[in-house]
Design a protein around this nucleic acid. Structure first.
Length: 202
DNA sequence: TGTCCGATATCCT
DNA sequence: GGATATCGGACAT
């Protein structure tokens, strides 16, 4: 199968579907002429104004969460705990706040560059968490609102023909959102590839 | 202008 | 397993 970049239409499917289809796709950043990145192995869905765990709960709009409302295929990135960036991709149509949080990658491209950016050698620890992978791929606020699907994009997703059968996908509650109350924090909207050694610890 | 706190990582025991 | 680093956005004052 030919390698190709994911087009806009990919991100216009339902957010739960996109969250699962992203498993096995490759996130690539062209950084200083080097391709760095890896295969997505863990994601989380945040779905609309009804989702109490979402930053857009109740239809809230602020300068920080505006990118959530963009049409599918844009970057929503923000800082937590004063030091960790969190990478999300918008899904759905313009005006509808839905997104997928990228929680973990299996390093595949430019691993030595990522090791340098993280100042760490252990491959298992390189991109196995949402904050870690942003540091490894050198992603921060400069990519806020970035369009993954634009021509000559420096940040994009690739289908390299890896198949991820439904049987290999596990799901469970999202991480770190207890504040959203039992109903929303229990929803099994976190997805990962079973037995993959690079998923986050949670 | 001030206070509060998080969609985490890391270091310590 | 537990503490805590560190900061900008949100919202109250």
């Amino acid at each position: 199968m030919k390698v190709h970049r994911l087009p806009r239409e990919f991100f216009l499917q339902s957010t739960l579907k996109v969250s699962q289809l992203l498993l096995g796709k490759f996130l690539i950043h062209e950084y200083r002429g080097q391709k760095i990145g890896g295969m997505i192995v863990e994601t989380e869905a945040y779905i609309g104004p009804e989702d109490r765990a979402s930053h857009a709960f109740g239809g809230k709009q602020t300068p920080r969460n505006l990118a959530e409302y963009l049409v599918g295929g844009h970057v929503y990135i923000y800082l937590v705990y004063g030091m960790h960036w969190q990478l999300n991709f918008s899904t759905s149509f313009h005006g509808r706040p839905e997104c997928v949080l990228i929680r973990a990658l299996e390093p595949t491209d430019g691993t030595f560059v990522m090791q340098r950016l993280r100042r760490i050698k252990d491959i298992r620890n390189l991109t196995s968490g949402p904050g870690k992978l942003c540091q490894a791929l050198k992603l921060d606020k400069s990519y806020y609102g970035y369009d993954l699907c634009q021509k000559n994009s420096k940040l994009y997703l690739e289908d390299r023909g890896v198949k991820t059968p439904k049987k290999q996908i596990a799901s469970g509650p999202r991480i770190g959102i207890d504040y959203a109350g039992p109903h929303w924090s229990k929803k099994p909207w976190r997805f990962w590839i079973k037995n993959n050694p690079y998923i986050s610890k949670g």
